[in-house]
């Protein structure tokens, strides 16, 4: 702890080390633990101030659990989450309260993340109410300002969420997340419930807010093309583990992990010009296996197009394959 505090400004805002979130599987009459699902299994990354880190993966890869564990909506079962130098992984709910002002989550489905029985003004003001900040008039002023900030007319204050379109609802959710001036937003598929023309506008709003307010984003998504455009760095996740982690440009120009290649290959391109970024077509096998019974060795080997005997026996480690670029594959060891 002591050596981490000497030079704060150079530290990343968030440093996640070997984060684990295991869920027990219970069975039998006595609810005995018979196994566990390793939803997040030894994930490490850093996120700088004003930076966007995207975590990409398919359903069931643990990306949402990762995001919510970082936001301490779940309690980690191992590893540490250093936020601004403080390990928030082990804090109690009471100790977390000040931290909650700094980390906010924007959810995938705005219809579900906004209480249908509350007016927009109460939803956006809720963080101030909970933390007992400001007078009534100040809260009202702040709500108006926030709505303006997310490009909503201020008279929307009096509406209920169901009276808004999906894109407008998501703007309300963003306004609520901004109420207390957080430094980190966990964006959990913030646009995947929206139409593309609406998604574009929400994304540009998020980018504008990041520039103006110096926010850091941990963005959880399944859309690789989107991350290419908005993330500084990208982590590719599969069955609870990071398979590859790289700056956006190098991930797309020079993907190292076979799983990343498969994801890239599977993207249906819209414009001819995109083809240049796609690897040769790879025939993809199977689906994500049951996370409670992951394959031996490299968890991706049953679906991998470059699998060799060794893959089912050895579990590869993340190794450096380029500047700030790590990947997990047995083939990397050959070349080193």
């Amino acid at each position: 702890m002591s050596d981490a505090t000497d030079d704060r400004t150079d530290d990343p805002l968030l440093r996640v080390q070997n984060l684990e979130k295991y869920y027990p599987i219970t069975g039998g009459l006595l609810k005995k633990k018979v196994g566990e699902v390793k939803a997040v299994d030894g994930v490490s990354f850093e996120l700088g101030r004003g930076e966007t880190l995207a975590i990409v993966g398919e359903s069931g890869c643990g990306k949402t659990t990762l995001g919510k564990t970082v936001a301490r909506l779940h309690e980690p079962t191992g590893g540490s989450i250093l936020f601004d130098g403080q390990d928030i992984g082990t804090l109690s709910e009471r100790e977390l309260k000040p931290v909650r002002r700094e980390i906010q989550v924007v959810y995938q489905d705005p219809t579900s993340s906004l209480n249908p029985r509350k007016r927009i003004k109460d939803i956006v003001a809720e963080p101030m109410t909970v933390h007992d900040i400001g007078t009534k008039a100040q809260r009202r002023e702040r709500v108006v300002e926030l709505l303006r900030r997310v490009d909503l007319p201020e008279d929307f204050r009096y509406r209920y969420p169901s009276e808004l379109s999906g894109g407008q609802q998501q703007r309300v959710a963003i306004a609520r997340a901004l109420t207390l001036n957080p430094s980190l937003l966990v964006l959990d598929e913030p646009t995947s419930a929206l139409d593309v023309s609406v998604q574009a506008k929400v994304i540009s709003l998020l980018e504008e807010l990041q520039d103006d307010l110096g926010l850091s984003y941990l963005m959880i998504t399944h859309d690789l093309s989107l991350t290419k455009n908005i993330a500084d760095r990208i982590g590719v996740m599969y069955l609870g583990k990071l398979m590859e982690k790289a700056p956006a440009a190098s991930l797309f120009d020079d993907p190292q992990n076979p799983y990343t290649e498969q994801l890239l290959s599977a993207i249906p391109i819209v414009e001819e010009s995109e083809a240049a970024y796609k690897p040769d077509r790879i025939s993809i096998q199977g689906e994500t296996p049951d996370p409670s019974d992951p394959p031996s060795g490299c968890s991706f080997h049953p679906r991998c197009h470059r699998t060799v005997d060794e893959c089912s026996r050895t579990e590869p480690e993340l190794v450096d394959v380029g500047p700030d670029h790590t990947s997990r594959c047995v083939h990397h060891d050959d070349t080193d």
Binding site: A200, L226, I267, I269, E271, E274
Partner: peptide, 8 residues
């Protein structure tokens, strides 16, 4: 509006 590998 669709995010593409080339541009967005």
């Amino acid at each position: 509006s669709v995010p593409k590998l080339t541009e967005f």
